[in-house]
Design a protein around this nucleic acid. Structure first.
Lengths: 209, 209
DNA sequence: CCAAAACCTGAAGCCTTCCTCATATTCTGA
DNA sequence: TCAGAATATGAGGAAGGCTTCAGGTTTTGG
């Protein structure tokens, strides 16, 4: 049961005028760029500010420290990802299991690969954070959506929905991530994705009504 | 095709006398401990040396820099892990598919969970390394073993062994890792592990002779 | 037993980084 | 229009980290 994010990691103040919204946006984008080039080791406040075209002081007006910046960036990313998954789940409420699996894998896979380098950079950056809160919040939110979807399947009845859900999402998210880390080729990725779908379908077949 | 590890990351010299072997061992252990406490951010050379009961200078006699230390630690861990997987694969050459899957999952899962905190710490530490070389070397070595095992199955014939292998290992390794990151309970873990086995078996059933 | 090799020490130099703050600029609302 | 709020600046203080090296101690091989 994760509490709220540590106060030391919360944003300092939220931009009110449009110019500052642009600034914050630039800072986020710059952070990604720096992360892409040199990873966490070379992510310095000066470098980010420089790349964003603002001064260090400006950065510190919105983020109390460096960690908070990376934290916010990841929170932002996960929020968008969760929203996409939720949308997929809504769209497939009441559908047959097969379609659900395919849709879920498709959404997740696409979200991760459409900007593969960014995904990788974030995967790495989040590793040095106190990411438990982030991860849990994300997991909880997304679990709610997928569980609900599964329970609504028109051609299945689950003796234990949360269990089936956990198996599904863990396998899917884990596989995608591992595929990333291995740096599989496009060909391999395509085959892998197909096989992953096969596996999930075969698993869910056990619950056919 | 990854080359050899960057020279900047190679150990400086290998201990010859037994006392220095003890020292190096202590340094490794200390590194793990420090990593456990505070992660990469708090891993400083001074702290590691202090915890190991040696002076900083000693550390630098064996590792040219801090990164090399973490690199070596991970290389060591992956080497042991690979050895265990290879052993499992040898033991199950010619066995039926079902047993192979179960054994592989068992070995990997056990290896990761018997010292869960260490596993987690290393997962995190490796994220800030130039880990491509490490990952690839590990993957290649382990793939060789598992592929060979699969090909030897007494009750199956694969149209494309490497493909089936990639699917299997990516799903297994990825799932285990993701389970870690979510911090699943023991109960959930047990169920998940069972379901993972079910999935893999169902997948492999497609190749039954 | 002794010389050479291996090993260990830890204070100190150098460098980078984070973050603040006093000041300047821009915007908003009445 | 203009006062006050919001935003931006960037040099510099303070802290801490990495790494070296000159000089000790221990071990080994003969």
């Amino acid at each position: 049961m994760p509490g709220p994010p540590p106060t030391a990691l919360q944003p300092r103040k939220t931009p009110r005028q449009s110019r500052s919204r642009v600034t914050v946006e630039a800072i986020f984008e710059a952070t990604i760029q720096v992360l892409l080039r040199g990873g966490m080791n070379e992510l310095t406040t000066t470098r980010v500010a420089e790349r964003a075209g603002v001064s260090v002081g400006t950065m510190y007006q919105y983020f109390p420290n460096k960690q908070a910046l990376v934290y916010a960036l990841n929170a932002r990313y996960l929020d968008a990802l969760a929203a996409r998954i939720e949308a997929t789940c809504r769209e497939h409420a009441g559908a047959p299991l097969g379609q659900m699996v395919e849709a879920l894998i498709n959404t997740y896979w696409t979200a991760k690969t459409e900007r593969a380098d960014v995904t990788r950079a974030l995967y790495r950056s989040v590793a040095e954070l106190n990411n438990d809160v982030l991860i849990h919040a994300f997991a909880e939110r997304v679990d709610r959506a997928t569980t609900e979807m599964l329970a609504s399947a028109c051609d299945a009845v689950f003796p234990d929905v949360p269990r089936a859900n956990l198996a599904l999402v863990t396998v899917i998210y884990g596989t995608v991530r591992n595929a990333f880390e291995r740096g599989v080729s496009d060909q391999e990725a395509a085959a892998l994705r197909q096989d992953l779908t096969t596996m999930c379908r075969a698993y869910l077949a056990n619950f056919r009504a």
